[in-house]
């Protein structure tokens, strides 16, 4: 098993499949009366969060607790360049506390890579800047597989602000590893140049959502921040929604079986309309539940061999 999960690129197909299979076992457990496993008893998992993300933190916390780990929440929000303790000093503190795993959320891309150089325990990337969010990709893949029965050959559109999206990067890497065909869709300003060469040569790019939808098994809508308008990535929220938002009319262009995903938090009315978000094709609520199972699987497998 790998030691750290810093990037979805850390996972080859057998490892990723093992995590998804394990997540399935963890999900089955959630239906039982006693939800806890003793696996990680006596082990310490630190949630080191430099950004507010209650949903991700709670998800990791629930995952660790269901595995009987001791959980320490270390909120370091506000500490950054000039003020507060440096990441290295924090790392040395966690090291002294005997952290077996550190789950890190950080506004700077690559912070988990730096942390892994300074601690002995496992490092799990819970979102770093505009880089990656590999456990989100795992829970998304798990959700797709549960709903559609497979990943190999699946056609997935990821729509929106790919340039700034850590979810998109991790999903492209993981889904491609698992045999899915990813198409990135958005205005050209929000799709990085050379994205296919950078992430996976099999990745397709389209600037036209309507032409892509009829062929998709999955459409994943990314959150688009309205502040991007100020930087001229697109002219207005209205124009963005008109060209790249998912409304009922567009959803009907999808095949019968296709599902609609969103990593949350949503900008209802911007990239997705409430009718679509709340429709039966939407997996948004399931994604949250699956998040706990996927993160349990990650912690279990990263720490499992070291009891």
């Amino acid at each position: 098993m790998i030691k750290h999960l810093r990037s979805a690129a850390d996972l080859d197909a057998p490892t990723a499949t093992l995590i998804l299979d394990t997540a399935g076992e963890m999900a089955a457990l959630a239906g039982r009366e006693v939800k806890k496993l003793p696996t990680l008893r006596g082990r310490t998992v630190v949630n080191l969060f430099y950004e507010d993300s209650t949903r991700t933190r709670i998800s990791f916390e629930a995952a660790a607790k269901r595995l009987s780990a001791d959980v320490i929440n270390f909120s370091a929000k506000g500490s950054s360049v000039s003020k507060g303790e440096s990441l290295k000093d924090t790392a040395l503190t966690l090291q002294a506390m005997g952290a077996d795993a550190v789950v890190i959320r950080h506004p700077a891309s690559g912070a988990p890579h730096r942390l892994a150089q300074w601690v002995d325990g496992s490092v799990v990337n819970a979102g770093d800047g505009t880089h990656e969010h590999p456990t989100q990709a795992l829970l998304d893949a798990y959700t797709m597989r549960s709903r559609l029965g497979r990943l190999d050959g699946l056609k997935v559109a990821i729509v929106g602000d790919v340039l700034h999206s850590r979810v998109a990067r991790s999903n492209v890497l993981l889904l491609t590893t698992l045999g899915a065909q990813v198409t990135l869709v958005g205005p050209p300003t929000l799709i990085p140049l050379n994205v296919a060469a950078a992430l996976s040569p099999k990745t397709k790019v389209s600037y036209d959502l309507d032409s892509v939808l009829p062929d998709m098994d999955v459409v994943m809508m990314l959150r688009v921040q309205t502040e991007r308008m100020q930087d001229s990535y697109f002219p207005s929220a209205r124009e963005y929604s008109r060209r790249y938002g998912l409304d009922l009319a567009r959803m009907r262009k999808l095949p019968e079986h296709a599902i609609v995903m969103h990593p949350g938090p949503m900008n209802r009315g911007m990239e997705i309309t409430p009718e679509v978000a709340d429709s039966s094709r939407s997996t948004i609520v399931e994604q949250v539940a699956n998040g706990v199972s996927a993160r349990m699987a990650v912690l279990y497998l990263l720490l499992g061999g070291k009891a």
Binding site: S109, H131, A198
Partner: peptide, 16 residues
Amino acid sequence: AQMHEGEVSTRLGLTG
């Protein structure tokens, strides 16, 4: 900007 804009910056999520 954090590094050269190209394939590597796209992969690393660093502003080009």
